[in-house]
Simulated scan of single mutants.
Amino acid sequence: MDTMNKEQLVESAREMKRHAYVPYSKFPVGVALLLKDGTVTNGVNVENVSLGATNCAERTAVFTAVANGYKKGDFQAIAVAGDTVDFLPPCSICRQVLAEFCLPDMPVYLTNEKKEILELTLKELLPYAFTDLDM
C-alpha cells in the first residue's frame, strides 16, 4: 500500500468502533476503506430496532465512498475491526457488496481483540463470488 500501511489502516478501523450505533447487539464494528488516491473512508455499523434496517460498517464505508464520487475499481484495501476472539469477517451481504466494487486481489485485513491481523484477498474471502460476469 502506497500511502498507508496495513497497521495504520487497521488502527483507523479500530478507532472507528467507538462511533458505532449498537444499542441492541452491543457489537461495535469499525471499518477503514483505503481508496486508490490515498483517501480513507471509514464506516461503522448502525443498528435499528427493526433489525433489517441495520447497516453494517463495511457497507457504510463503501456506500459513503460511492456517494463521494468513487467508483468500481477505486478501492485498494479494507480493514475490519471488532472486539472478537476470532478474526472478524464481513457478513455475506457485505462480501457481495465488496465483490461489486473491489477487485478480487484487493487486500482484506481482519482483526481480533488481541490486535492480531489476518491478511487475505477478497477472492480468498469470497471464492465463488456472484459477479456481473455471471449475468
Rank of each mutant, 00 (worst) to 15 (best):
N68Q: 12
V44M: 03
T60E: 09
S92D: 15
D83N: 15
C91E: 12
A53H: 12
V44A: 04
Q76G: 03
A79P: 05
E58K: 00
K72P: 00
A79S: 14
G69N: 09
A53I: 00
K71A: 07
V80I: 15
G69H: 07
A53W: 11
Q96R: 14
S92L: 09
A67L: 06
A61W: 05
N45V: 04
V62P: 03
C102H: 04
C102E: 02
A81D: 08
T60Q: 09
P90A: 15
N55F: 01
T64H: 06
A99Q: 08
A79H: 11
T64C: 01
C94Q: 05
D83Y: 06
T54W: 11
V85M: 13
A53K: 15
R95I: 00
G82N: 07
C56A: 13
G73L: 09
E47Q: 03
A57L: 04
T60K: 04
C102I: 07
N45A: 04
R59N: 12
V97K: 13
V46N: 06
F75K: 10
G73Q: 08
R59E: 12
V80G: 00
D86K: 12
F75G: 09
I78G: 11
A57D: 08
A57M: 04
V80R: 14
Q76N: 09
N55Q: 15
T64L: 02
D86L: 11
T41A: 09
S92C: 06
V46H: 10
A57T: 05
A57S: 15
I78H: 10
V40R: 02
A67I: 00
G69P: 10
E58F: 01
A77C: 08
V66F: 06
Q76D: 06
F87G: 01
K71R: 15
V85G: 09
T84S: 12
A81S: 15
T64K: 14
D74K: 11
A79Y: 09
V40P: 01
C56I: 04
D83L: 13
L98P: 10
N55A: 01
C94F: 05
N55P: 00
